[in-house]
């Protein structure tokens, strides 16, 4: 394996891009990612916050203390991972992280790995999805993605501009990839439209350093509130209003997540209404 330190975006052609490495390195070590070439993109990805634009190379640690950043995003960063991981991990990379589904991480031949079944549906799925879980029941683990989704974030890549929800797609038999980036396409910046109030609330199995069981972000613009959830579907999930949870399809051992989500949604909506 070779490591190339990119000094221009043109140099990023082929191989696997690496920024903080908190996801890429463990996946390489476990053999889930394989490559002959790593490209260190830290030198070519914008970093820092300027007005309502956030460089994709900005770390979660930088964002959790930045007063320019909307509450929901700052709180999502603060509640994510551990201090060391927040020091290392970039917000762009955070959006591209893979599921924590134990079957996927242990390389079971599941739908996402090209196999013909979802082991979680039939097996252990306590932490898994309550929406869109008929083909793959994995849960998307990004707190930050839920916050950015509620905030109505636009994503600027090396090739285009798109709404954050269009960065993701649900896996199907024809297309198992959950992210819509083309090969070699990199996230450069995130653009956050102004909101009047926002919040991120997170249920986890301990108070710190845990992935979301359920994360709820809410952002209010005037009388309109957008709600997005982490940990409830294979991709970050935009909820169709406060009653959106009525459409949940929990598995036998994930019904509890619906109740947790209801409580957090209620609190989040009340919170942004009062701010």
């Amino acid at each position: 394996m070779e490591l190339v330190r990119a000094t221009s975006l043109e140099q990023v052609d082929g191989g696997i891009a690496i920024h903080g490495g908190t996801e890429v390195v463990p996946l390489l070590r476990d053999g889930i990612l394989q490559t002959e070439k790593l490209v260190d993109i830290r030198g070519v990805i914008p970093r820092g916050v300027a007005g309502n634009r956030i460089g994709a190379g900005t770390t979660l640690a930088e964002l959790e203390v930045d007063p320019q950043v909307p509450d929901a995003l700052r709180e999502a960063c603060r509640l994510a991972a551990s201090p060391q991981l927040r020091n290392m991990g970039s917000i762009g990379g955070n959006l591209l992280q893979s599921t924590r589904c134990w079957y996927w991480r242990l390389k079971y031949p599941c739908h996402l790995h090209g196999g013909d079944r979802c082991h979680a549906r039939e097996g252990e799925h306590r932490e898994h999805a309550i929406f869109a879980n008929d083909y793959c029941a994995s849960a998307h683990p990004s707190d930050v993605a839920a916050a950015l989704l509620a905030l109505g974030t636009r994503v600027h890549t090396t090739q285009r501009e798109l709404a954050l929800e269009d960065l993701y797609r649900l896996p199907t038999v024809e297309e198992r990839e959950l992210v819509t980036l083309a090969p070699g396409e990199l996230i450069l910046e995130l653009e956050l439209p102004p909101v009047d109030a926002s919040v991120y609330l997170k249920a986890m199995d301990r108070k710190r350093w845990a992935f979301p069981q359920v994360g709820v972000a809410a952002a209010r613009v005037g009388g309109e509130t957008r709600i997005a959830l982490a940990g409830v579907a294979p991709v970050p999930w935009l909820l169709d209003g406060v009653d959106g949870l009525d459409a949940a399809t929990p598995l036998p051992r994930t019904a509890w997540k619906v109740e947790v989500a209801r409580a957090l949604v209620r609190r989040a909506v009340t919170s942004v209404a009062a701010k």
Partner: peptide, 11 residues
Amino acid sequence: PVLSCITLAHN
């Protein structure tokens, strides 16, 4: 503070 077990030495 960073985690040296998931930091590549060459990086």
